[in-house]
Amino acid sequence: MADPPPPGTRLYRHRWPTRLWHWLNAIAIFILIGSGLGISNAHPRLYWGQYGANFDHAWAHLPRFPAWLTIPANYNLALSRRWHLFFALVLVFGLLAFMLASLINRHFQRDLRPRAAELRPRHLGADIAAHLAFRFHDPARPAAYNILQKLTYVAVIGILLPLVILTGLTLSPGMNAAWPWLVDLFGGRQSARSLHFIAMAAISAFIVIHLTLVILSGAWNGIRSMLTGWWRVPQ
């Protein structure tokens, strides 16, 4: 095995499809969450099942999201929907293109696929301990994703984003006619609406954790590598 690269070595870490999608998707997600919270303000109640309106039992009464969180700032359902539905297309086709590119350039197989050895409880425990000690890189292979990172990215790309997209599609009466199986998959339009909100909350939690870890693991090095592709092995 080759010697590990010493600290300070510049490594080409992110290929252009990954970088392009990362930023395009970051913008789309940011706008989708803001406009989505604006749409939520129109009827801030969540239900399970096929139907749900004012006289029906709501499992969640959402807060009114304040102007500094919503797009547009002032309540405007029509404009929130225009933002949301335009960037929904960016999210969907961006994700499809990224998935295709990442299969072709083997980003998924090479960088994101968890290996059997990494999934052993011992290894998982060691990685959790390393995170708690703010050690995020394996000195032997510093540019490789650690297993918690892999599992998180796989969960977001493979589960949360498809879930938020499919539940979003289920809210469309046109898509309900085109793809009736969507309604059955989620057990009704109002269940899909609840799951859409929950998926958004989970994605928001990911963003908070992701940004925190970017800062903790060297903000500028991380951001630069996502802009230019080049990353410096930390001390």
Binding site: R82, L85, L89, A177
Partner: peptide, 29 residues
């Protein structure tokens, strides 16, 4: 975005694709 969604939906659905119909007991109270 509206035109794009309309174009995509119309391409994905039959002209006469039906909206879901429900049983009487599935109606809202």
């Amino acid at each position: 975005g509206e035109d794009m969604h309309r174009g995509i939906q119309r391409a994905l659905m039959d002209r006469d694709a039906l909206a879901r119909e429900f049983r009487p007991d599935q109606r809202s109270p």
